[in-house]
Design a binder for these strands. Structure first.
Lengths: 160, 160
DNA sequence: CTACGAGTTCAAGCCGACTTGAGGTCAAGC
DNA sequence: GCTTGACCTCAAGTCGGCTTGAACTCGTAG
């Protein structure tokens, strides 16, 4: 009978069994049945987990991710929503880029206090310039979710 | 007398008083004394809060941020450490960029299932390719930390 | 028959960054 | 003198995303 048990899914994706159960409970993945009391998963769950990992890595909340996936596989999102997400991410990227530059500059700037340096100040300003909100970015641990199928309160920041 | 009370700091930065007390408790900011039982803050705390916000926006933990700041102002970090942080951020940025591209592609890709599309799979792979770990990015709400300074009583310059 | 290992359920715990609530103090204004 | 409102402290609560632990059930090997 086809269907992988939880250990195999875990092994192949790097996602702990406890997380898989949790995801199932949250409706993010579904098992295709049981053999005895044990869950059986369709291999398609591997792709699904990869998509979930993608979303998590992008800083999306689980609820948000589940709203992006249909029960049976895919992109339940319309173009607009996807684009919106992409833009959101783009804002984040720009913000992070400004911060990275601020750090790099701080590393070599001679000013005693960074805030006295115009370049640094500018970066700080850019970093905080947007007025959007961004989901927290998930801790990204290596290891996980192979996509290959072989065998198969509130930090506030304002500027003026 | 010099020194701003907590409400003024809050008003000028957007950081809630509760957060300021919390930051003080965590050692991220210090008050310069009390008037009665009330805290008094030096205007320099405004810069400090801007830096803290910068760090938070960059996904750094409070502990990490405090390890980057000296009690009296700033750059306690050596060049190497700053560069390391910048590189870390750079990894994050690349990862997010890959995810953004995956989303943009998914928005217009005709493939029924995203995972069947090589372009998408490649993006997913890139997104997950690194084997590093990244701190969570703080939720980014607008409103806060004005770096603005109208009266520069202390003589040092802050953001316009 | 028994023991073992791998699975199961359910409730509770953990972490970080704050927020909230109860109860207390104090200076100013009526 | 009394009220008000802004501040104070300290403990506990919140939220997301899991993890952990206790207690139980199976199927299989010895």
């Amino acid at each position: 009978m086809k269907g992988m048990d939880i250990a195999e899914v875990s092994r192949r994706t790097g996602v702990p069994a406890s997380t898989l159960r949790y995801y199932e409970e949250r409706g993010l993945v579904a098992s295709i049945g049981r053999r005895g009391q044990r869950r059986l998963f369709d291999p398609a769950v591997l792709d699904r987990l990869a998509l979930i990992a993608l979303g998590r890595a992008g800083g999306f909340a689980l609820d948000e991710i589940s709203s992006m996936l249909t029960p049976d596989g895919l992109p339940k999102m319309d173009r607009g929503r996807l684009d919106a997400k992409a833009n959101e991410l783009d804002q984040t990227i720009q913000r992070l880029t400004a911060i990275r530059e601020a750090l790099r500059h701080a590393a070599k700037c001679p000013a005693a206090r960074p805030m006295e340096c115009p370049t640094f100040r500018r970066a700080v300003r850019l970093a905080g310039a947007g007025r959007f909100e961004v989901a927290p970015l998930a801790p990204f641990k290596a290891e996980a979710v192979s996509v290959t199928r072989r065998k198969r309160r509130t930090g506030h920041v304002r500027l003026e």
